[in-house]
Design a protein around this nucleic acid. Structure first.
Lengths: 193, 193
DNA sequence: TATTTAAAAGGACAATTGTCTCAAGAATAA
DNA sequence: TTATTCTTGAGACAATTGTCCTTTTAAATA
């Protein structure tokens, strides 16, 4: 769940070092602040240097569905830059988040001119599809208990950072269901956090 | 649901015309035949010239979850070619399916040498992520009735081609739930197919 | 420390969805 | 036409998950 994309991060660190024209800017976001809002123009592409953010979608029912937690090396805004459309997710900082920010134009230029970067983005997109497909399928076919067990280690790792509400929003369930199932798993000795 | 990717199809038609080295092969699959199987090496990338296929994942519960129905211009095998990993989905022909088939190597060469193709693939991947995110979120946050109504037109269009079981597998529900909800919607006059 | 506010846990009940089973209808083959 | 098989539809019941609301616990602030 909290995979990191070291390759992409390393690439950006190097790019930032050699950048003399201000194409890459570092920016810091405070915990709980909003980085991107749904249905707005996106002018930049962001790569997380440090911290954790959540990428979520607010449904007409009023509930948020968390697409993914983003850690180091994760990129966002790139889909909008490629599709040339508005944002379809909101992004909030969870911890303090430091990003490398590059303009949409520079991002598209890099894609054209830098073969390594191009390949990295292709890989990143392919990975996003792969993981999304696996998760979507699993979510639709398994009860809450299984979904929780599957992410046991991830949640234990993130427990101090994210709320129960956010875990529920990631699993697409209510906090009531989450608590109920957590308690059952504790009784069974299958969960401890 | 059954979007077509005309741009990519047109590109391949042109490429096929000018192909003198046998890099692009046309292949036909009979209805219900399997084109790709989960967890196998993938040696080629496929673009649908004609027909409809389903892309699905078989869970340990024994149920299939349909990721997407693929129509004209849809590409598959490309994620595996980029990630250099085994297949993570199975692909079955629903109607008779004619594909353009290109080798993994040729696909990767094209990505490097042909800027237009590269851009098309980037767009295609970005679109897959976009649509998957929207659907996953909607599926997790809405009851069966809403999911069905949302796809009313698509299902009406596909009704003669796909089975009830396949609709259920696409929505991640059982046929029992599907039938129950369809009946309710008919009673309410909201559904007719 | 006392007070206020927010997050987490859970009781009671309702709604939704799934499991199991069987019967009706349609399609296919003998 | 008559079996045979497959798809569809649905009854009865069980399990899962959600809604609403209250209580408990923890954290933040005066």
């Amino acid at each position: 769940m909290l995979r990191i994309n070291k390759e992409l991060l390393d690439f950006l660190v190097a790019l930032h070092h050699s950048d003399t024209e201000g194409n890459i800017v570092e920016q810091t976001f405070q915990p709980k602040s909003q980085i991107l809002l749904e249905n707005k123009h996106v002018f930049s592409v962001y790569i997380i240097k440090n911290g954790i953010a959540k990428c979520y979608l607010t449904e007409d029912t009023g509930t948020d569905f968390i697409q993914e937690f983003f850690g180091e090396g994760w990129i966002f805004g790139e889909i909008e830059a490629i599709r040339d459309e508005q944002s379809f997710c909101s992004i909030d900082a969870i911890s303090e988040v430091i990003v490398y920010k590059i303009s949409k134009d520079f991002f598209n230029t890099l894609l054209k001119t830098n073969e390594d970067f191009n390949r990295l983005i292709l890989k990143t997109l392919a990975n996003k599809i792969y993981h999304k497909a696996i998760r979507h399928s699993y979510n639709q076919s398994h009860p809450v208990e299984s979904k929780l067990l599957r992410l046991k280690d991830d949640f234990a790792e993130l427990a101090s950072l994210i709320s129960k509400q956010e875990i529920a929003n990631y699993l697409g369930i209510t906090t009531r269901s989450l608590n109920r199932t957590l308690k059952e798993l504790k009784t069974k000795g299958l969960m401890d956090f």
